[in-house]
C-alpha cells in the first residue's frame, strides 16, 4: 500500500509558498521519492491569501487535484489565522506547522482544529536574522523536515544548496542553509 503524505501550504502572495511547495517536491524527487508540487494559481496579488500543495509518496502519484484533506498544514503567515480556516479538512491526527513569534496559547485560540501535533517556529525572525529579509519559506522547509516524515534534513540541505548555487551568491546560499538548520533546531511543539 502506498504511503502518501499530503501537505497544504497557506501564505500570502509573495511569501514563497509556491516556491516552497515546489522545492519540497523537488527535494523529495531527488531523494528518490515520488512527489508533486503545485500552487493554486490565480492572478498574482501580493498579500492575497494563497495555497500551495505538495504530495510525497513511495509510489507514483496519480491524483491531480487540490488537497482538501491534508496530512500536514503549513502556515507561512500567522495573520492568516484570523481570516482563513487553514485547518479545514485536516484530521485531528494531522500536523500543523505555523510561522509565528506568538506563544502556543495565542495560536491555539485562533485555530478551530483540536489535534495534538501543533508546531510553531519563528521562521520570519530567523530569515530576518540570517538573510536580512523576512522570507519564511526556506526555514519553514527546515522545520517541516524535523516534524514530519517528508524529506530528511540532509537531503533538503543538499538540494537547496545545489539549486541555489546556480542562481545566487554564496552569501545568499549560506544564509538559506543556516535558516533551514536553525528552524530545524528551533521548531517547538505547542
Amino acid at each position: 500500500m502506498a504511503k502518501l503524505t499530503e501537505i497544504r501550504w497557506h501564505a500570502r502572495g509573495g511569501q514563497g509558498a509556491k516556491t516552497a511547495s515546489t522545492f519540497l517536491a523537488e527535494a523529495a524527487i531527488h531523494a528518490g521519492m515520488y512527489s508533486q508540487g503545485f500552487p493554486d494559481y490565480g492572478p498574482e496579488r501580493m498579500g492575497a491569501p494563497i495555497r500551495g500543495f505538495t504530495r510525497i509518496s513511495d509510489q507514483p502519484i496519480r491524483l491531480h487535484c487540490a488537497i482538501d484533506e491534508p496530512d500536514v498544514v503549513v502556515v507561512l503567515d500567522d495573520t492568516l489565522l484570523d481570516n482563513v480556516d487553514v485547518c479545514e479538512g485536516l484530521p485531528e491526527t494531522g500536523i500543523v506547522l505555523i510561522n509565528s513569534h506568538k506563544d502556543a496559547a495565542t495560536i491555539r485560540s485562533k485555530i478551530k482544529w483540536k489535534g495534538k501535533s501543533l508546531f510553531i517556529v519563528n521562521a520570519s525572525g530567523i530569515a530576518l536574522e540570517e538573510m536580512g529579509r523576512p522570507i519564511p519559506n526556506t526555514p519553514m522547509l527546515g522545520a517541516l523536515a524535523k516534524i514530519s516524515e517528508t524529506v530528511a534534513l540532509d537531503a533538503l540541505l543538499e538540494d537547496i544548496q545545489k539549486k541555489f548555487a546556480k542562481k545566487f551568491k554564496a552569501q545568499v546560499v549560506e544564509g538559506n542553509l543556516r535558516s533551514i538548520k536553525r528552524a530545524y533546531e528551533e521548531v517547538r511543539a505547542a
Binding site: 523537488e26 515520488y34 512527489s35 508533486q36 508540487g37 503545485f38 500552487p39 494559481y41 491531480h64
Partner: peptide
Amino acid sequence: LDGFIISHTTEV
C-alpha cells in the same frame, strides 16, 4: 497538457 494542473505541477 492540462493548463496549470500539469503545465505548472512539478512531478517526477
